[in-house]
Design a binder for these strands. Structure first.
Lengths: 155, 155
DNA sequence: GTCATAGGACTACATTTGTAGTCGTTGTGT
DNA sequence: ACACAACGACTACAAATGTAGTCCTATGAC
C-alpha cells in the first residue's frame, strides 16, 4: 500500500525527445543533452531548439520527477528517474484507452486494423516479430472464446 | 498535387471522446451528442461535462475541420468529416514516432516489448488476433533479413 | 583575490486544451 | 403577435506546452 510507484508524470512530445537522449546515453550534463539531440543525415539538428529551451525542458522534467540530478562541479548531471519502459507503457495504454474506451466493437475493430497496418509495415527485427507473435499466441490461449471480455485492469 | 487530403487536424483527448460518439451513432445534434456520451454501469456520465463544454468542443472540431454540419431547424446536425481510421492511424503513427524516432535498437526494443505486453493482455476477438498475426506474417515476408531498414515513408 | 563565464533559477509569452459562462437570435407554442 | 426556450456565437480563464530570455552565482583561470 505504501509503494506508490505508479502513475508516472506523463511526458509531452518535446519532453520525450529529451528523455530519449538520457535513456540512450545515460546521465549527462545539460550541454551534453543538448549536443546529444538527434541530427539528420547532414548533421542538422532535427529540432531547432535553443540551448535554453533544452534547459527549460530539463528543469520541467526534474519538477515532474522524471529526472533527478547530481551536482558535479558547477553543473548538474541529469539522470532518468523513470524507466523508459514504464513511460512507454503509459503512453501506449493511454492511447489505446483514448481510441477504444467506451466504444463498441466497430471502434475496436478500427484500432485493430490500424495496428495491423503498422505491424505489417513497421521495420521490425525478426526477434521483435517473434516476440509479438508470441504475445498474440498467449492472448489466444488466455481468451478461448471470442466475445471481447472486460479486460484486466492492472489499475 | 492538388489533393491535400492528408494531415488531418490532430484531436485532443476530449475531442476524441466527442468524435467517438459521432463515429458510432452517425450525425447528431449537439443535444444528442451530449446525451450520447458514455455512462458507467450505474448510468452516471463518465465525463462530468456541462452541455456547454460539449458545445465548445463541437465548435472547435468544426473549426479544425474534423466535423461539418448541416442546419436542421434551429440547430445543427453535426457529422464527422474525417474518418475514424484516418485519425486512429495518425495517432498511432504519431505515438510510435514519438517513442522511437531517432532512437537506437534499444529504444525500439522497449516499445516492441510494451506492445507485446498489450497485445498479450488486450481483449481481442479471434478475428482481431488473426488479423494481427497475418500482419506480422506479412512483415516477416517483406523484411527477409533482420537489419531494421528505413521504413516506408508514405510522406 | 579578481574577473569573466558557464550554469542554474526565475520570468516571459503565445498557443492549445479543458471547462464553462453570457448574450443575442430564432423557432415554437398559444 | 408575443413570450420564452433552445441554439449558436463569442468571451473567459486557468493549466500545460513550446520556446526562449534575464539575471545572479558559483567556478575556474590567472
Amino acid at each position: 500500500m505504501a509503494a506508490e510507484k505508479h502513475e508516472p508524470p506523463a511526458l509531452s512530445p518535446t519532453e520525450w525527445e529529451v528523455m530519449k537522449v538520457l535513456w540512450e546515453r545515460g546521465p549527462l550534463a545539460a550541454r551534453d543533452v543538448f549536443a546529444g539531440l538527434p541530427r539528420d543525415a547532414r548533421g542538422k539538428p532535427v529540432h531547432d531548439w535553443a540551448y535554453r529551451t533544452v534547459k527549460t525542458l530539463l528543469s520541467r522534467l526534474v519538477a515532474k520527477g522524471a529526472l533527478d540530478y547530481e551536482q558535479v562541479g558547477n553543473s548538474y548531471l541529469y539522470r532518468a528517474a523513470v524507466a523508459q519502459e514504464a513511460m512507454a507503457r503509459q503512453e501506449v495504454g493511454g492511447l489505446l484507452d483514448r481510441l477504444t474506451s467506451h466504444t463498441g466493437a466497430a471502434g475496436r475493430k478500427v484500432v485493430s486494423t490500424v495496428l495491423a497496418q503498422f505491424l505489417g509495415d513497421a521495420e521490425l527485427s525478426d526477434d521483435e516479430v517473434r516476440q509479438l507473435q508470441a504475445a498474440l499466441e498467449r492472448n489466444r490461449r488466455a481468451a478461448p472464446g471470442k466475445p471481447p471480455r472486460r479486460g484486466g485492469r492492472s489499475k
